[in-house]
Design a protein around this nucleic acid. Structure first.
Lengths: 224, 224
DNA sequence: ATGCACAAAATTGTTAGCAATCTCGTACGG
DNA sequence: CCGTACGAGATTGCTAACAATTTTGTGCAT
């Protein structure tokens, strides 16, 4: 287990315990349903058991961890059904953000958006799956930032955290980029046209296609 | 301070500490920006300081409490701007739920909805503000339940918790019920007609009118 | 009077140890 | 041979004391 272990002399509080564990879960270092024993974790991340305990409480309310009284914590496994629900909520909330972004985008924002669009085109034509996946994240993050919707941002962070595994599998699905590219470009275009309704519609269509794709992708990699 | 203090022989874990404190905040027993000192709280709710501490961590991630390193916790005061953002997110997520409810409602669900509608009518014509406010909560809860959207339910619970103060002030605003009654009836009708698009639209219009009303209501009661 | 240094009080953060609870292996009885 | 009771080991939950930090109050010099 090549767990990132950074204790010893380095000031550990620089990176709060909860962030270390959250990262480890989202990066897939801890598998779904894996037990998270407080004593073990406190050694691995070099923190006190109480700190780990607090972190687990917090991650539970974030939906990443499941805790049962006197039975400990484990990484929460989100089912396909839950993944669909989460993406449905994402669909409407990101739709809202796209609409707000279309209302508020400055010329500089629009340049950034168009730039990402161009990079996406080249990534897809060049078959750069991983690069396209990164651009995908950047695009959604940018739309969120431009929208200025702090509350939506927090909600989406949490939802995305719960869904990383499904998102990852989807990104690696063959043929997926060529489906989502035109959708992404439509979102960018609508925002640059300052057309809120079109932007919301485009974002919703994009995430609706994600929802449609989830069941198929789920079949390939088994949930163990 | 008539804090509900139920310690002594009764098993305190029956009602977890975090729920007690959350209730106290949402019921307004703790004012916004009020400091929440761990030692004080642990006496008031009859729990250990560690338990209170955990509860405060959890409530922080729920957005009800603000915590600063070495400086303690206080009740988070949500500004008008934040209240608007929260209601915007509510608008789209509850819109989603209304659409799902329109797709899934059974005849029994529809009877329940129409029943609430009738009670709302009589409450408004009778000037029963508090009764109407209760029916309002019941309607939104029922739509959520019928939608079967667990994820949306969790998201909305958290958002509603942060917004209780503004919601309360809005409910007590004179003339508000007669504005929202027809909107509520439209939502009920669309769901009973099994028309998802209309249900979503009606719910969004309803919450949009809430957003429009928030700034006015905010002027009356000062934020202190 | 005002501003600064310093000390005391209050409060949070951390640690170690103990008690309560659950899991799992084992032996006993049917 | 199967089901159940029991006990050892592991793990979580809790308490109490201690350390670190911030806030508040006081005195002194300007």
């Amino acid at each position: 287990m090549t767990t990132a272990k950074r204790d010893d002399d380095q000031p550990t509080d620089q990176v709060p315990v909860v962030d270390v564990i959250r990262e480890a879960i989202t990066r897939g270092e801890f598998a779904p349903n894996q037990r998270l024993v407080e004593a073990e974790l406190s050694e691995q991340v070099g923190a006190s058991r109480a700190a780990v305990r607090n972190a687990l409480v917090q991650l539970t309310t974030e939906g990443l961890v499941e805790r049962i009284q006197n039975r400990g914590a484990r990484v929460r496994a989100v089912s396909l059904q839950e993944a669909i629900e989460i993406t449905e909520v994402r669909m409407v909330v990101e739709g809202l953000c796209a609409a707000r972004a279309a209302e508020r985008a400055t010329e500089e924002d629009k340049d950034d958006l168009r730039d990402i669009g161009e990079q996406m085109r080249t990534a897809v034509s060049g078959g750069d799956v991983w690069g396209y996946s990164e651009l995908n994240k950047r695009l959604h993050a940018l739309v969120l930032r431009v929208s200025g919707q702090q509350t939506a941002h927090e909600v989406l962070s949490r939802l995305r955290g719960q869904n990383v595994r499904h998102q990852f599998r989807l990104a690696m699905h063959p043929g997926r980029p060529s489906v989502s590219l035109p959708q992404h470009l439509a979102i960018i275009e609508a925002i640059c046209d300052a057309d809120p309704a079109a932007a919301e519609q485009a974002m919703r269509e994009h995430l609706h296609s994600v929802i449609d794709a989830l069941p198929e992708v789920d079949k390939t990699g088994s949930t163990i």
